[in-house]
Measured scan of single mutants.
Amino acid sequence: TKIIYHMDEEETPYLVKLPVAPERVTLADFKNVLSNRPVHAYKFFFKSMDQDFGVVKEEIFDDNAKLPCFNGRVVSWL
């Protein structure tokens, strides 16, 4: 699974690849690859589809939650 993530106000996003199927990747999986960053200091928002509003940034805080996936990749903002 490819996860593209944006940090603070930085213009260029980062990319990490996880050896987990897109439909199975969790917030804990993502946090594990960010071990060099203080993950407890961040809120995690993900590109998600809402039936009422369309594409939104959804906050996910449960480490066991599966991450929303679009075209085989996850897009996140920290």
Rank of each mutant, 00 (worst) to 15 (best):
T1I: 12
K2R: 10
K2S: 10
K2A: 07
I4E: 15
I4M: 06
Y5G: 03
Y5N: 00
Y5T: 00
H6D: 01
M7R: 01
M7F: 09
M7I: 09
E9V: 03
E9L: 09
E10M: 08
E10H: 08
T12N: 09
Y14K: 14
Y14T: 11
V16K: 04
V16M: 06
K17F: 11
K17V: 14
L18C: 13
P22S: 06
P22Y: 03
P22R: 04
E23M: 07
E23Y: 04
R24E: 14
R24Y: 08
V25W: 00
T26K: 03
T26W: 02
T26R: 08
L27R: 00
L27T: 00
L27A: 00
L27E: 00
D29N: 02
D29V: 04
N32W: 04
N32I: 08
N32D: 12
N32T: 09
L34T: 02
L34C: 06
L34V: 06
S35K: 13
S35L: 14
S35V: 14
N36Q: 11
N36P: 13
V39T: 10
V39C: 10
V39Y: 06
A41W: 06
A41M: 14
A41S: 11
K43I: 03
F44S: 01
F45M: 07
M49G: 13
M49R: 13
D50V: 10
D50W: 02
Q51W: 07
Q51A: 12
D52Q: 13
D52Y: 05
F53L: 14
G54H: 15
V55L: 12
V56T: 15
K57G: 06
E58Y: 14
E58C: 09
E59D: 00
I60K: 01
F61L: 12
D62R: 07
D63S: 08
A65W: 01
K66F: 04
L67C: 00
L67A: 08
P68H: 04
F70Y: 10
F70D: 03
F70N: 05
N71C: 06
G72M: 01
G72T: 00
R73L: 13
R73T: 07
V74Q: 08
V74F: 09
V74I: 07
V74H: 05
V75P: 00
S76N: 01
